Amino acid sequence: MFAIVEIAGLQYKVEKDQKLYVNRLNLEKGAKVTFDKVLLTVNGSVTVGAPAVSGVSVEAEVLDQVKADKVIVFKKKRRKGYAVKNGHRQQMTQIQITGITGF
């Protein structure tokens, strides 16, 4: 049994007890969150929403607020003496799916 859910503008395939990293959610560690925008569910049969499946929700718990690996951005223009190096670490939220309800 799994579902495809939209979290913070991105779509994720989730199952019960799965841990995943999503774009930062402004929640405290240990908080419970419910995602109502479920696009597809599979529980023996496939249910596709138009655009979302009504009555189905995904419940999750926030495990931690972390930063992703560093991404190096390097820009250079040859023969001009121009070179810029920047780094960036995206803020992420680690969540654990506690259940899919409403079948």
Rank of each mutant, 00 (worst) to 15 (best):
1 M>L: 09
1 M>C: 03
2 F>M: 03
2 F>T: 01
4 I>R: 03
5 V>Y: 06
6 E>D: 11
7 I>L: 01
7 I>S: 01
9 G>L: 02
9 G>D: 07
11 Q>E: 14
12 Y>Q: 05
13 K>F: 04
14 V>K: 03
15 E>D: 03
15 E>Y: 08
15 E>C: 09
15 E>M: 11
16 K>S: 07
16 K>E: 12
16 K>M: 04
17 D>R: 00
18 Q>K: 13
20 L>M: 07
20 L>D: 09
21 Y>E: 14
22 V>C: 00
23 N>A: 08
23 N>C: 02
23 N>Y: 13
25 L>M: 14
26 N>Q: 15
27 L>V: 11
27 L>P: 06
28 E>D: 15
29 K>T: 14
30 G>C: 09
30 G>L: 08
32 K>E: 10
33 V>R: 05
34 T>V: 12
34 T>G: 00
35 F>M: 06
35 F>K: 04
36 D>N: 14
36 D>I: 01
36 D>H: 08
36 D>F: 03
37 K>F: 08
37 K>R: 14
40 L>W: 05
40 L>G: 05
41 T>Q: 08
41 T>Y: 06
42 V>A: 10
42 V>L: 10
42 V>H: 09
43 N>P: 03
45 S>V: 14
45 S>M: 06
46 V>R: 08
47 T>N: 10
47 T>Y: 02
48 V>I: 15
48 V>D: 03
48 V>G: 00
48 V>R: 08
49 G>A: 04
49 G>E: 04
51 P>D: 13
52 A>D: 09
52 A>E: 13
53 V>P: 00
53 V>A: 02
53 V>G: 01
54 S>A: 14
55 G>S: 06
55 G>K: 01
56 V>G: 02
56 V>S: 02
58 V>E: 00
60 A>Y: 05
60 A>N: 05
60 A>H: 04
61 E>Q: 10
62 V>Y: 06
64 D>H: 05
64 D>I: 05
65 Q>R: 06
66 V>M: 11
66 V>A: 12
66 V>S: 09
67 K>S: 13
67 K>A: 12
67 K>P: 04
67 K>I: 07
67 K>C: 10
72 I>D: 11
72 I>R: 14
75 K>D: 11
76 K>G: 07
81 G>D: 12
84 V>E: 15
84 V>D: 13
85 K>I: 13
85 K>N: 13
86 N>H: 15
86 N>F: 15
86 N>Q: 15
88 H>S: 10
88 H>W: 15
88 H>R: 13
89 R>Q: 14
90 Q>V: 15
90 Q>R: 15
92 M>G: 07
94 Q>R: 14
94 Q>D: 08
95 I>A: 02
95 I>T: 03
95 I>P: 02
96 Q>L: 04
97 I>E: 00
98 T>K: 04
98 T>E: 02
98 T>P: 05
99 G>N: 04
101 T>V: 13
101 T>C: 02
102 G>E: 03
102 G>N: 03
103 F>Q: 07
